[in-house]
Design a protein around this nucleic acid. Structure first.
Length: 690
DNA sequence: GACTGGGCGCTTTTT
DNA sequence: GCGCCCAGTC
């Protein structure tokens, strides 16, 4: 026995005590997953395992932070200091900084974000003379990312008979070449290069020797390279504990591979399996609804959530006329809960499928004067000013960062327009020189417009002049000087005549200064490079901390709700076409949508309200909509076959439009509709007239 | 080279 | 219905 098992149920205890050999913990929503992981690690340490032998990997910084914090509370002061707890990406960056030269990386490689990726891809497509119509950059990027997340290179596509596929392969190659030339890696590369690194036995051996106990959180979200990293490091001693819930796998579209958790017992023969099914979060009624929905998925580990909390209120289902009515109802209901039931604001959340849905809710909430927090949306780091200033900094840290250079080469305008940049790039390609060198030696090349060269060169030289200010104590000075040297404040004034927007924009710039100041306090270890790395890897988190959690209600997508819980949840837009999303229906991904619905339902502790509408404005047009099949499932009803047909027809049309020209056999024509969508709602208890 | 309007096309977004 | 891209003007 161990003191770390007191207060745990039998299954949790078994998971904590099973320290040797492979272990799969299937942790349903709200079953105390984090508790098990943290107690298990504390138990390992108490049993004499040195902290430095433990490697725990998560997908988010938030999860990593929480894990560290909770372990620290369990073990004697300082005993957890040598644990390696972090995201896969952070772990890989650290390893690659140390050994990256073995796989052809520079020590000071940068990490590029989504925006840089898009720029690189656009550049690649331009070079290949592919128009955006032939090959939309975003789509191309997501396909390349998907390939990387399966550890696939471009080769397979280059030999394809299909021109589109060949183009994709070539774009993949050009894109990668652009990143390499800039000395940066994208997020997928961090994992892919780590796998490459571990392929070398001599490099792998010390990792295996050191990390004798592995733990992976949210294993259902593991992609190809991540799995490979776990398999390589843990493959010999096999002390690999993975924790996750296949029913909450909602990131398939970006490469997460549920089959990894479904096949764990095959991949690690002899694995112990623990199912955590006692839910400490929600009422019996809510879990009934959740179980009833998820039961309809076919490929899953069988699990049924049991409520430890006992009975509560029935799930409330409401049908509304349209999205405005939906928002009105929800906000009015919330107001009533706040006033009459004294429900704290922080206990309330509205969850939705798509980013356009919250708009009407925001309007209503503002009108009602209720403070809310919209999670997601544009992040601080997506703002133009932030991206611009960070690009200057990236250029100072790494003069060959061509992506950063291209972004700000004419910001503020310095006479280096698109045509000039094109010419410079052409010269660079022709002479196989970095863009920065072409600019520096501009006068040697007759083909270049003199004015543009002078402007670009002056810009690069002024940045180079600041390169000496890179240490921790000078980070803030550096940012201030950069902003001053390029004249960014004036640029903001020029672009935004309105005082209010101007101030907001400038605020973002000063916020970077604050971040630099905070980072500088790390002391000697703080450098410009470490600052940029921190920003790249922790961007999302810094966004989160802005939220004054209490005293605001939450609006967020189902995706961002995973892992959270709220006293009272409004799951809105429970309609065919929205949840499940029409696109997913068309692609045959209804099971992942069902998991999304399941995630939504299981966020609620004591009260769940599900709403759907009769009509909804979509792409500016109003259309009649049907209640979601998941609603029927949740209520234990047969989904009308009609509804599925109609939904498939709508989805089919969408797909046909998208694959223009392709002969897509649309679903059979919708039968004469006669379903009464209200039927489901009528049965639902507690539906009250407003 | 820098600024304005018409046209198109749309999920989700841990790092 | 909104934003983003490109094409057209000054």
């Amino acid at each position: 026995m161990s003191k770390f098992t007191t207060g745990l149920n039998d299954e949790q205890r078994r998971a904590v005590l099973t320290t040797e050999g492979p272990l799969l913990v299937l942790a349903g929503a709200g079953t105390g997953k984090t508790r098990v992981i943290t107690h298990r690690i504390a138990h390992l340490l108490a049993g004499g395992v040195p902290a430095r032998a433990v490697l725990a990997m998560t997908f988010t910084n938030k999860a990593a932070g929480e894990m560290k914090e909770r372990i620290a509370k369990l073990v004697p002061h300082g005993a957890g200091a040598d644990l390696t707890v972090g995201t896969f990406h952070a772990f890989c960056v650290k390893a690659l900084r140390q050994f990256g030269d073995r796989v052809g990386l520079r020590r000071n490689f940068g990490i590029c974000d989504a925006d840089d990726q898009l720029m690189a891809m656009k550049q690649a497509l331009r070079e290949l003379q592919l128009t955006e119509a032939d090959m939309p950059p975003r789509l191309c990027l997501s396909r390349v990312s998907l390939l990387k997340s399966r550890l696939l290179g471009a080769e397979g596509h280059l030999e394809s008979g299909d021109q589109g596929e060949v183009d994709l392969g070539r774009a993949y190659q050009r894109y990668d070449a652009a990143l390499r030339a800039s000395g940066v890696l994208d997020f997928d590369d961090l994992l892919v290069y780590m796998v490459k690194l571990l392929q070398d036995r001599a490099t792998l051996a010390p990792f295996r020797e050191r990390f004798r106990y592995l733990c992976v959180d949210e294993y259902q979200d593991t992609n190809g390279p991540q799995y490979e990293i776990v398999r390589q490091i843990g493959g010999e001693h096999r002390n690999v504990c993975v924790v996750g819930d296949d029913d909450q796998s909602i990131y398939g579209w970006r490469g997460a591979d549920v089959s990894k958790i479904l096949n764990f017992e095959r991949d690690f023969p002899g694995a112990a399996v623990v199912r955590l099914e006692t839910n400490y979060r929600s009422t019996y009624e809510i879990l009934q609804g959740a179980n009833a929905v998820i039961r309809h998925n076919t490929s899953r580990h069988e699990k049924t959530l049991r409520s430890a909390a006992g009975n509560g209120e029935a799930i409330i289902v409401r049908r509304l006329r349209d999205e405005n009515g939906e928002a009105e109802f929800v906000v009015a209901d919330m107001l009533q809960r706040l006033r009459d039931q004294r429900v704290p604001l922080g206990d309330l959340a509205v969850l939705f499928r798509t980013a356009v849905q919250p708009r009407v809710f925001e309007m209503q909430l503002r009108r009602a004067g209720i403070p809310y927090n919209l999670v997601g949306g544009m992040s601080f780091f997506d703002r133009k000013e932030v991206r611009d200033v960070l690009s200057y900094l990236k250029l100072i840290a790494n003069p060959s960062d061509e992506l950063a250079l291209l972004r700000v080469i004419n910001t503020p305008p310095r006479g280096v327009g698109g045509t000039s940049v094109e010419k410079m790039l052409a010269v660079a390609a022709q002479h196989r020189l970095p863009l920065a060198d072409v600019i520096a030696r501009g006068s040697e090349f007759a083909a270049l417009p003199a004015g543009a060269v002078v402007g670009a060169r002056a810009f690069l030289e002024s940045l180079a002049g600041l390169r000496h200010l890179q240490t921790g104590k000078d980070l803030v000075t550096l940012v201030k000087q950069v902003v001053q040297v390029v004249g960014y404040q004036e640029e903001i004034k020029r672009c935004y005549p309105e005082q209010v927007t101007r101030l907001k924009r400038w605020e973002a710039v000063t916020e970077i200064m604050n971040m630099a100041e905070a980072h500088g306090r790390m002391g000697e270890a703080a450098t410009l490079a470490s600052f940029l790395e921190d920003v790249a890897l922790n961007a999302q988190d810094d966004n989160d901390k802005e939220e004054p959690a209490e005293g605001r209600l939450t609006l967020m997508t189902l995706h961002s709700a995973k892992g959270l819980e709220f006293g009272e949840v409004y799951l809105v837009g429970m309609e065919e076409g929205l949840l499940p999303h029409a696109r997913s229906v068309a692609d045959g991904n209804v099971e992942e949508e069902r998991r999304l619905a399941y995630v939504g339902i299981t966020r609620a502790r004591r009260r769940l309200t599900v709403t759907y509408t009769e009509s909804r404005a979509r792409y500016g047009k109003r259309a009649t909509v049907l209640p979601s099949r998941f609603l029927y499932e949740m209520l234990g009803k047969q989904t009308p076959p009609d509804l599925l047909h109609q939904s498939a027809a709508v989805a089919g049309k969408l797909a046909a439009v998208e694959e223009e020209g392709a002969v897509v056999a649309a679903a059979p024509p919708a039968p004469a509709r006669a379903t009464k969508p209200a039927a489901a709602a009528k049965k639902a208890p507690a539906a009250k007239k407003r």
